[in-house]
Each structure stands twice: as C-alpha cells, then as structure tokens.
C-alpha cells in the first residue's frame, strides 16, 4: 500500500501491465480467428504460407529481438546512472523499430505488386482458405506494424527525455513502462513468425 499523493512506482507498473493485458487480448481475438480458420482450412494455410518470404520474416525477428535487448539495456543503464548510455540505447531501439517497418514495407509492397492485397484480383482468384490466410496476414501484421510505429515514437520520446534529464535514475518508471510495451510488441511478433512464415 502506498501513501496517497506520492509517486507510486509499483502502481504505475501494475497499470501498465493491465494495459498490456488489453493489448494481449486485442491480438488474442485475432489469434482466436487464426486458429479457427487454420483448423477449418489446414491445406490452404500451408499452401499460402509458402508464398511468404521466410528470409525477411526471420530477419525481422532478429531485428526485433535485438531491439528488445537494447530497450532492456536502456533501462539498466538509466537505473545504474549511466544516462547518456541509456539515451543511446533508447535511440538504437527506436532505430531498429524503424528498420523493422522498412523491411515490412518492402514485404507488403512485393505482395501488392503481385495483386495480393485485400480486394486484389490475384487474391480473389485464390481458394477461400488462402484468401483468409492473407486477410489475417495483412490484418495481424498491419496491426502489429501500427504498434511498432507507436513504439518507435514512444522510445524516441523516452530517448529525448533521458537525454534532457527528465527521466533519470531516481525516476524512470515511464522508461520501464515504455520498455514493457516494446517487449510485448516483440512477444507478439515472436508468435506471428511461426503462425505465418513457418506454417508451410
């Protein structure tokens, strides 16, 4: 229990975790749909998955895993009082998030150029199960991409705040919470990789 009025470090973290649960359930709804449709159309899912670029998918996984490491390092640095290191790691985290988005854009672009997009001719010509696979693929990676984008903005703001000394060793719960958000985005991608790229 905390004194009223004082900054409540543990309370902020509980609030953040509860928010993460809502994110988890938001994607959870899509995971429910994915598992439902995959059980109804196992063959089509295998087939459609083969058309995705595994190399890009795995590369992006490594990018996000590394960015997660950097986010964790940013927090550790600030907690240990090495503030300039903390800002540097936060910038690097945001930068890798940017890399992820660029790779994702190329991937989507390649699909679009082959007519694979919602309502696209090539997509409509595919069997229904494959159409569903791509519908879920664009929805889930798209929603995830939006979360990465939000995370990039968030981490950049954190880097600025650490740089200016507004977030520091004695008061870094916002950095910790931003890190938690970034790690959750990473965890969701950890699940998206095998569901889409490795389902062949």
């Amino acid at each position: 229990m905390s004194e009223n009025g004082r900054r409540d470090y543990q309370g902020s973290k509980i609030g953040m975790w509860l928010f993460l649960f809502t994110e988890l359930m938001l994607f959870g709804g899509l995971f429910i749909l994915y598992s439902g449709y995959r059980s109804l159309h196992p063959e089509s899912f295998h087939h459609a998955s083969r058309e995705l670029n595994v190399v890009l998918g795995v590369a992006n996984t490594l990018v996000l895993l590394t960015s997660s490491l950097f986010a964790a390092l940013a927090l550790t640095s600030v907690q240990q009082g090495r503030h300039s290191d903390g800002a540097k790691w936060a910038w690097l985290t945001a930068g890798l998030g940017g890399v992820f988005l660029v790779v994702k854009a190329f991937e989507w672009g390649a699909k679009f150029s082959h007519g694979i997009y919602p309502g696209g001719k090539a997509l409509l010509a595919l069997p229904p199960g494959e159409g569903l696979f791509y519908g879920l693929y664009f929805t889930m990676t798209g929603l995830h991409g939006l979360h990465v984008l939000a995370g990039v903005v968030l981490l950049s703001v954190m880097a600025l705040l650490v740089g200016k000394g507004r977030v520091h060793q004695g008061d870094c719960v916002v950095l910790e919470n931003s890190g938690l958000y970034w790690h959750l985005v990473d965890v969701i991608w950890i699940f998206l990789l095998p569901l889409f790229y490795l389902a062949a």
Binding site: I32, G36, G119, P128, L132, G135
Partner: peptide, 21 residues
C-alpha cells in the same frame, strides 16, 4: 472498407466466428 474477407461468407469467412468473438 477493404473487404479483407474474414467475416465474409462469399470469401470463405465464417459468420459463426464473428458470433463467438
């Protein structure tokens, strides 16, 4: 907006899954 198909029976979507969710 985009016709992604997940709830559209014409595209293989299952309206029952909508009801579940």
């Amino acid at each position: 907006a985009f016709g992604i198909g997940v709830f559209d029976p014409a595209k293989g979507g299952d309206p029952l899954l909508y009801q579940h969710l």
